[in-house]
Design a binder for these strands. Structure first.
Lengths: 251, 251
DNA sequence: TGACTGAAGAGAGCAGTGCTCTCGAATTGG
DNA sequence: CCAATTCGAGAGCACTGCTCTCTTCAGTCA
């Protein structure tokens, strides 16, 4: 960013600061609209400037470059999707809708998956920015990583809590070959690192499988890879996701 | 294309035709190199023209637009990946390497998955073009669909042949809820349509799951979604892919 | 062989892009 | 009230995709 966007304490903000915030918001809004309408390739700094009646060079007072703007949009999108996922994944059991719905771990997972898919369909270009092919400069380092892992962390959290509470069903009769020792150790370390100690390597593999399949399926549906197939088929999605969740041991 | 590239019978081609073919090839080669080096966004018609010592407008004699060039690259990439996958998926059992290797259906699937992953790692930008977020104009209609489904068809073929030969293991004790009737019917119709009559809806769901998980995992590995995780971990990939293949019933 | 047709390349030019720089005007904090 | 900072405007650079015109030359047909 051009100036570091430190959060100003509270009340006393100068008119300039308030103007800057508002214009930043308007720029982001216009950019987001163009992104939604034309996709990332069609997003031009000049045209968002034009939309706000300002000249292109003025935008550089707010964003260092087009890439910086795009990166900001990416972070925001990650947060939006993350918040959506978290809302479902971590919904307390006492929610109104929860009264009627099943609130088991399995239902939590499936509902979260559905929410992610729904968000993706509502924001296809943004989803593409997040989980499609990355373009060079974007979303480089630390900034995005915290937001970028949010959606996935929501999913992992479901499993981690279920595992910690001993609510995970034992794996089905071991038909799969055992994991290589090195991989098992790696996964165990990883689980500990993210504070999911109760997640065994076997469960981790199943979870990673479910995770990648979820986003793989959504991407295929969205990017037209399933054109000749059952497209946008919610029932298929549910079936596939449910089967993966069962394989993790969620019930 | 500017002129329809009908395959000239054989021998008698005029010098002009030969020149056109060669220049087309050189253009594609240069474009492919730039794509590999800088990614799709960095591929410019003018710079490939420059590389061949011609002026930008001359390139339009060979490709209608930048999008047409890119579409051609996409089709070629699909074919390259498809050929790679087919070579492994349909390798006769009598191959030299097959003597030492396992040639069961399971091994076939896993090896094909490995080949796809390896190709993706060798051609990251091309893979991104194929399975990343699509950009508006590209790869629109019929042209790509035949090539575009090749990699996936190689995988499906393994299952279809195994199913037809009755070599599929029965599903594990039914812990998953039965498929909705409508979905089952749809999948059955789909299977018949692609000439895989022996593939039951349950197997189809497992296969679609394995398929989407495969590409989801590769995409995550390639696009950096797994940065903080076990990155480029072949053992993890193998484990996940094997488990999915087992769920299909491959042995 | 010679003339006509069509293809290929060169070059100029247009509209658009991201980005830089400079120069006034306005707002701020001392 | 004044100096310092911030902001917007404008011109300009290098680049892009694409179109148009003009010239040259290979292929074909009489």
């Amino acid at each position: 960013m051009t100036t570091d966007e430190t959060v100003v304490p509270a009340v006393h903000r100068t008119a300039r600061q308030r103007a800057r915030e508002q214009i930043t918001t308007e720029l982001l809004g216009a950019a987001r609209r163009q992104l939604a309408a034309e996709g990332a390739a069609g997003l031009s700094l000049r045209s968002v400037a034009r939309e706000l009646g300002m000249v292109s060079s003025a935008v550089y007072r707010y964003f260092d470059s087009r890439d910086a703007l795009l990166t900001r949009l990416i972070v925001d999108a990650y947060d939006a999707l993350g918040a959506t996922a978290e809302a479902v994944a971590e919904a307390p059991e006492s929610t109104a809708e929860a009264a009627a719905e099943d609130t088991g771990d399995l239902a939590r997972w499936v509902n979260t998956a559905r929410a992610i898919r729904a968000w993706a369909f509502d924001h296809p270009h943004e989803y593409g920015l997040l989980y499609g092919s990355p373009v060079p400069g974007y979303a480089a380092p630390e900034t995005t990583v915290a937001s970028g892992t949010r959606p996935s962390r929501a999913l992992v959290g479901i499993v981690a809590r279920a595992a910690a509470a001993g609510r995970l069903a034992p794996p089905s009769p071991a038909e799969a070959p055992p994991l290589p020792a090195a991989l098992a150790a790696e996964l165990e370390a990883l689980a500990r690192q993210i504070g999911a100690d109760a997640v065994s390597p076997e469960v981790a593999v199943a979870m990673i499988g479910a995770w990648t399949q979820l986003f793989g399926l959504v991407s295929f549906e969205l990017f037209g890879q399933t054109r000749n197939m059952v497209v946008g088929n919610a029932a298929l999605f549910d079936a596939a996701v449910t089967r993966q969740a069962l394989a993790i041991g969620l019930r």
